[in-house]
Amino acid sequence: MIEVRNLSKYYGSRAAVDDITFGVDEGQIVGFLGPNGAGKTTTIRILTCFMPATNGSATVAGHDVLTASMRVRESVGYLPESVPLYPEMRVREYLRFRGKLRGMDRAARESAIQRVVARCWLQDVIGRPIGQLSKGFRQRVGLADALLHNPKVLILDEPTVGLDPRQIRETRSLIQELAADHTVMLSSHILPEVEATCQRIIIIHEGQLVAQGSPEELRAKVTEGTSLIAELKGPVTDVSAEMRKLAGVTDVHAQAIDGWTQVTLTTARDVREDVYKVSQEKSWPLRELRRDIATLEDFFVKIVAGTRV
């Protein structure tokens, strides 16, 4: 549905997006993750034909964003980050205006407005001027506008920014519902958000694509080299020495904590059983044994801190 090849965008000599390549399949919800200023909005603006790329190409729904811009715009529903709306217009007026812009005739327009208003819970505010609406409602008006022409592809730039927790949850479940009929690409700088809604995650940092895959795949990438933490009641040096003997242990770090010895093992395989056996043989009581499973959050933080994976 979306194909991006070697896309770059320079503002002057600064690269906002630097040679990124990715694809999004039909029916997927893809999260576009990166810290602020990573180049998410720039990429999205290129995909929605707001600005041209400096290098590379992109196609959306089979149309090139540069040469078939009108076809792309017809097949994309776009919610810009700032949710720009006309404050003096009423919600119904605005949606009618957007429908006309999309070339819909009166009947198509009215039925589409009914559909999106129901979908985005706008019934109560349909006659109110947009300028009087709260941020949450404005976001929904923007989303309703993006859905008006029933687009194949939905591109949402930070759809939940500035919403309260309840609205965030509502928006998330709405996006998940929408995935049944649309291919969704959403951007965010908040990881749990993307983790909760998306089947695939694309992480970019400083304009470059640093990782992509399903949340599980990305998690697997980080779990390589899992560490195991054990606390045994034994002398620090002895415990440390015994642990080093275990097969698969590559590194041991031991420290004394109020009479107990805490060891952190870097292992290639699961050695929990072996640790238990050692504790049995040496009669060192064992009070803690846990794996330190890396979260996507760690992964993301690592990337943002500058470590390439």
């Binding site: 603006r45 929605t48 034909c49 707001f50 009108m70 715009r73 017809e74 994309v76 776009y78 810009p80 700032s82 720009p84 957007r98 812009l101 999309r102 070339g103 506008d145």
Partner: peptide, 8 residues
């Protein structure tokens, strides 16, 4: 302008 210029 962004929503205008991304409309068909």
């Amino acid at each position: 302008i962004e929503s205008l210029m991304t409309a068909p």
